[in-house]
Structure formats: C-alpha cells, structure tokens
Amino acid sequence: MCLSVPGRVVSIDGMTAVVDFWGVRRQVQLHIVDEPVAPGDYVLNHVGFAVRRIDPSEVAKTLALFEELMAGGSDDLLAAEIHAQLGGDDA
C-alpha cells in the first residue's frame, strides 16, 4: 500500500535532509521521524518524508532472523508439533 524506499542521509539542513537512494539523491522531510537523524543514518522514505530511522544493527538482526528461519531445525519443528498436539484445541 505504501511505496517506501530506504536511503542514506547525506546532509541535513533544519528539517530537510538530502538522502542518497542507491545512486540518486533527493530531499526528504524530517518532521515525523521519532529519533534524531544524522548524516550517515539510514531512513525509510515515503512520499518525500522520512517515516523511520533504520537502525543498522536491526538490519543485521533481520538477516540473522532469516538465517534462523531458513535453518529451522527439525527439533524445533518436532517440539512445535508436540506443542500443537498438547494445546490442540486452540490450534
């Protein structure tokens, strides 16, 4: 529903930042980000506004989460199945 694109802040002038999106730059308004934003930070842009500062450590966490999901682990699945059977009525 909402086309949003992450980019890296290049410079900031008041409430307006210049953000680099993978090779092109444009101005982005900072009125509604809820964290201090500094050059070098990543922000999520929607219709010309930064709606979120993206924490780089969270990007790493997301990738780790994918690894975890991919690995899955048959033990977990088995446990999940038993869990499901035990609490079967609300499954």
Binding site: V33, D34, T62, L65, E81, H83, G88, D90
Partner: peptide, 20 residues
Amino acid sequence: LAGRQEVINCFPRCVSRDGN
C-alpha cells in the same frame, strides 16, 4: 503449526512495538 497466537515482528529494522 504450533498453535501460537501472537504478534511476530519480522520487520524489526523498521518496526518497533510502539511505533513512531
């Protein structure tokens, strides 16, 4: 599969519990 009813956040790089 596990019969868990919960909110799972798979987009932690942009989404927090309390939002913006």
